[in-house]
Design a protein around this nucleic acid. Sequence first.
DNA 1: TTGAAAGCGCTAACAT
DNA 2: ATGTTAGCGCTTTCAA
Lengths: 332, 332
Amino acid sequence: MSAVTLSQVAREAGVSLATASRVLNGSDRRPAEHIAERVRNAAETLGYVANAQAQALARSTTGLVGLVVHDIADPYFSSIAKGVQRRARADRRQLLLAATDGTDQLDAVAAFAAHRTDAIIMAGSRRREIDPRLLAELTRYQKNGGRVVTIGQAWLEGAGSVTIDNRGAGAGLTDMLIRAGRTRFAFLGGPEELASAAERRAGFYWALERAGLTAEAELTEGFNSQGGYEAARGLLERLGPDAVRGLTVVVGNDVMALGAIAGFRHAGLLVPDDLWVAGFDDIPNLRDFSPGLTTVRFPLEQIGEAAADIALSHDEVRIQHVVGEIVRRESA
Amino acid sequence: MSAVTLSQVAREAGVSLATASRVLNGSDRRPAEHIAERVRNAAETLGYVANAQAQALARSTTGLVGLVVHDIADPYFSSIAKGVQRRARADRRQLLLAATDGTDQLDAVAAFAAHRTDAIIMAGSRRREIDPRLLAELTRYQKNGGRVVTIGQAWLEGAGSVTIDNRGAGAGLTDMLIRAGRTRFAFLGGPEELASAAERRAGFYWALERAGLTAEAELTEGFNSQGGYEAARGLLERLGPDAVRGLTVVVGNDVMALGAIAGFRHAGLLVPDDLWVAGFDDIPNLRDFSPGLTTVRFPLEQIGEAAADIALSHDEVRIQHVVGEIVRRESA
DNA sequence: TTGAAAGCGCTAACAT
DNA sequence: ATGTTAGCGCTTTCAA
């Protein structure tokens, strides 16, 4: 990575380092136009590309923002990432992306801290019990002037946040279904350590209880398509096809719900003919799916943008709350 | 972004800067264990986090790899990104991600060059006619020691590449369909400037021609779900529902194919009852889709990994060719 | 084995 | 308005 340096440009243009810096890399002081011209020409002919590392060192700010997601191939996270990216680019910031597959959030945060990102956005599924080392790392990062924004819940003191009303979504969705006349329910959820999974489940039970109903079954699997598939098969195994017929199955998220529908279908049960299924998020690929999945919409890209906005804003740390919107389609 | 510096650690430990550097941030020279211990303790109590920018400046290598995609929310690209990320992490590299929405690849590359990424992976849809400024920027980047890897086609001299056999896939898929007895075809494709779109289309026509067949229609729309939907509606408008019935519709990629199927469905035409549809890529969310989509599988995550592998490998630039595998499902 | 010191490329006081 | 120069935090050669 050798490259043309500023001083080479300065020499070529016959000006000082400082002048070259001023014309090439913004400054409030504007050198005379004829000299600026000379510098620009020199830069052009030499092929100068500013060294962001050196600038970062000198300016003590990197223009980097870090995003931690669980799985970038999951439409939930990739939609959020798209929003973050868009907002970051509007500010000419670069995005450092880490996909953690769940475990090594700590590594990712440490790497971001080392790279002195100006902000870190945590979209990774928050575990209910947060690794104290992760907490310590983030806290230190904040103490050093870094801004952190959490998506989902506001689980870090001093951090900005875009909170998602998972519990309300679970309750609202279930409630709507009950009012639509449904009485027989089951829940397929993700690991209870995932806060969002746990909250959606809690909302589900809260609505059920309020209506004097009880769930006929609950299964827990991975918070992904495969998990949904397995949960569906597990439900069938546990209850038998006859009992599953007529059930309204609330599933922890859309990706998992699609997997569950596939699982039921492979067992010969069709949604919405034999049973009903609903999910959460309203991920973009739902659009092409048939039957249309009843779900609770969270505007994922906007959530990403909002998180980036908080991360990049210079005023006080904000917490923004997002409430889902129930979208009724054919599946339930 | 103030933070504890190495010299603070060195002072605290009562050793020189050099020694502290050697124990904390790897080196072939290993200080005595008892002194290393002291340094590590000092770093721990002070909360030292190495400054990657400073290290980059001193070492003249950043440990960054840049990835340019078209749309990170598109499963094609997010799957590739997942593979790249995985491989990068195995090398403890950080991933700089840019989503370009098609146009500003140049900006993205310039930013990566400024950040002195060790490598740049271009997964963005390559336009047939490459912006000469983009070419110039990448060439300069290479001249300065940066490695670039292109995914799709090998369109940059001196760059590594994971090439995708789009033409072969188009021909193979169509050929298979013809041998299965299909005679009436249509093609729904993406913009002709996109190299992959154009190649798949070329393969389609090549196979058709060889069999003495001609396409009954061809439409071009956006290379995404929405484009597929519109193309389907357009096809219906052009040919009328009766002529569309019995058609085998080859679509430029899976995302677009799913959109097309939805478009047909909304018009009352069901796949595979009324017509057939096939796509390309075998994106992961196909798994839950019904009817199962006949497609040509390209191992997206592996392609990403391979690209990263070439980008990070120290030996000569490699070009790896990936041939698709036809996956026959219910849709065609 | 350990330390001193010269950079790495740039910015921003401070001088002129 | 332009130039000089002292860092920014770290690595690495060269001496000790």
